[in-house]
Amino acid sequence: MTGTELLTGAPSTVQALAVIGLVFLEAIILYVGYGTVEEAVGPAVLDRLAGR
C-alpha cells in the first residue's frame, strides 16, 4: 500500500510528490487535531500531575 494507487500510470516523480504531499497533510491534520485535544485536556492533565 503506497497510498498513491489512484495515480497508477502517473510518472514516478508525480507519485513521489503525492506521497510527500500525503504525509505532509497527515502531519498537519495530526498536529492540529492533537493541538485541539491538548488545549481541551492539557490543563486538566497538568493539574492532575501537579496534584491539584
Binding site: M1, G3, T13, Q15, A16, L17, V19, I20, V23
Partner: peptide, 14 residues
Amino acid sequence: GAFTYGRAGVIDMG
C-alpha cells in the same frame, strides 16, 4: 529521502 524512495514506489503508507 521520501522523494527518492517514493519514486521507486516502496513507501508503505499504512
